[in-house]
């Protein structure tokens, strides 16, 4: 995995003449992505707007986004990694087995045409969604696409960007990165950060039942996790901070209602291209903000003894 070659959405608007969406349905999930940032806008170096750009969509089925695409490539479910790998080989001019490509639901000519277009463009961008990153291969698929974008820079300018779903999930990555050094799934149990997706990622911890308490804010895992994970949340003491009484609140020991981010509570949110934007709350909420409640919990925890074991306990081997 070799890092992310990316850019801002402003650069996409002003420069990108080749736009590839992979495993996402922006027409329905990010309705203004096309019109505000990508294909429909006239950019500084794209005075023709939509006519000056090529849009390719890769997905396992025809979605609403197909209408906006110049080329639609329908991949057999779970074969994304194979397609990216074939593309990487073609980019380098290596021979690719026709039969292996056909297993992915596509033809070699289609992939060769795609690679030719990618090499011909002046500024290419790949937006990848959860259809790529949450299906068979998971983070290895994301890594493969990021590598493809990086390798394309031997021929032309090329970048990749994940299509982030929830409002400030990009901000969560940023904050965890600058505070702990890792973007998600960070274990602080030993007093220093450890990172290991698959071991310290929430779904795995919950399904295995590894945790003995949960503090949930800005999420509703009680509605989205697999059943064994939800069972764990119901078994251990769960604390929820949310503007609504959610599915998770109903199985939690403690729920605290908080004001709605961006509508009532001020602060900062990161856009999917990692540009921070200030929020402009308009309504005065009768509830405290998440920030304030977390701070109050910290103050209450501070009044208790430190969680680290005492040196004497460690020496006697009771630990």
């Amino acid at each position: 995995m070799g890092g992310k070659v990316s850019c801002t959405l402003g650069e996409v608007k002003n420069r990108a003449d080749f736009i590839l969406y992979w495993g996402g349905n922006p027409a329905e999930c990010h309705p203004r992505h096309f019109t505000k940032y990508t294909i429909m806008q006239k950019g500084k170096f794209l005075p023709e707007g939509r006519k000056g750009r090529t849009m390719v969509l890769v997905d396992i089925r025809e979605t609403m986004s197909v209408k906006a695409a110049d080329i639609f490539l329908q991949v057999r479910p779970g074969k994304d990694f194979e397609v990216v790998t074939a593309l990487r080989a073609l980019v380098k001019g290596n021979r690719v087995d026709t039969a292996l490509v056909e297993e992915t639901g596509l033809k070699l000519e289609q992939l060769q045409d795609l690679v030719d277009r990618m090499k011909r463009c002046k500024f290419g961008v790949i937006f990848f969604g959860m259809g790529l990153s949450m299906t068979r291969g998971k983070h290895m698929n994301s890594a493969a696409v990021l590598t493809l974008a990086a390798e394309m820079n031997a021929f032309t300018k090329f970048v990749a960007m994940p299509m982030r779903g929830h409002g400030n999930v990009a901000g969560a990555d940023m904050v965890l990165r600058w505070t702990t050094g890792y973007p998600f799934g960070v274990n602080l149990c030993r007093g220093f950060p450890r990172f290991n997706p698959g071991e310290f990622s929430t779904v795995d911890l919950l399904v295995r039942g590894d945790i003995d308490a949960a503090f949930v804010l800005g999420a509703d895992p009680g509605a989205t996790m697999p059943q064994p994970g939800i069972d764990t949340l119901a078994r251990v003491p769960t604390i929820v901070l949310d503007p609504k009484v959610t599915h998770t609140s109903k199985l939690a020991r403690v729920h605290i209602t908080t004001s709605v981010t961006g509508i009532s509570s001020p602060g900062t949110a990161y856009r999917m291209d990692e540009v921070p934007l200030p929020l402009r709350p308009v309504l005065k909420s009768p509830y405290p903000s998440d920030e304030e409640v977390v701070r109050r919990i910290i103050a209450a925890v501070d009044k208790k003894s430190a969680w680290l074991p005492k040196p004497a306990t460690m020496a006697s081997g009771v630990m």
Binding site: H166, V169, A172, I211, G218, S289, E291
Partner: peptide, 12 residues
């Protein structure tokens, strides 16, 4: 071993 999870719909 508590878990702090979510963080998506809250401010930085």
């Amino acid at each position: 071993m508590p878990l702090v999870y979510g963080l998506s719909n809250v401010t930085c």
